[in-house]
């Protein structure tokens, strides 16, 4: 029992160190730089995309993973690389619901730094194409025995 608890604690410490999410700071940055359009719970509104229970689908392809950083709201925000990585991971964990795999790879500041150097311009069309690719990939995986 004691060994199991120690292992659990060690796992939790490692996981939290890897993610390095300061919940208060991430929530504040979400409120300041994201929620004005995406709504406090990530539900979006009108033309603003919904992140709640959906955002994790983008992680299933490399282009989708890059998109979450290259989209102008992320790439050109006033957040530093580490803050952007933190708030993206916070969104994925807190709002992604079942769309996020349990073993998803969190963003690092270095990855964010590289990706945001190439922000997207024509977002809507690009996003529609991405979602089409993701849906096709999921259909293929579902039909593969």
């Amino acid at each position: 029992m004691r060994i199991a608890l120690s292992a659990l604690l060690a796992f939790w410490v490692c996981a939290s160190q890897a993610l390095e999410i300061n919940d208060d700071r991430a929530r504040f940055n979400y409120q300041m730089f994201c929620s004005g359009c995406h709504a406090p719970d990530g539900a979006g509104s009108g033309d603003v995309p919904r992140m709640k229970d959906h955002v994790g689908h983008f992680l299933t392809t490399d282009a989708g993973r890059s998109y979450l950083v290259r989209v102008p709201g992320s790439a050109t925000s006033a957040l530093r690389d580490e803050e952007l990585a933190e708030v993206l991971n916070w969104i994925l964990i807190g709002m992604g619901g079942d769309s996020v795999a349990e073993d998803f790879k969190p963003y690092s500041a270095a990855e964010v730094s590289t990706l945001r150097a190439a922000p997207l311009n024509e977002v809507e069309e690009y996003r529609a194409g991405l979602l089409q690719d993701i849906a096709q990939q999921q259909t293929e995986q579902a039909t593969t025995p």
Binding site: M32, S35, G36, S45, G46
Partner: peptide, 8 residues
Amino acid sequence: SPITWIGT
């Protein structure tokens, strides 16, 4: 409006 200006 659901889309808002946010500050402190």
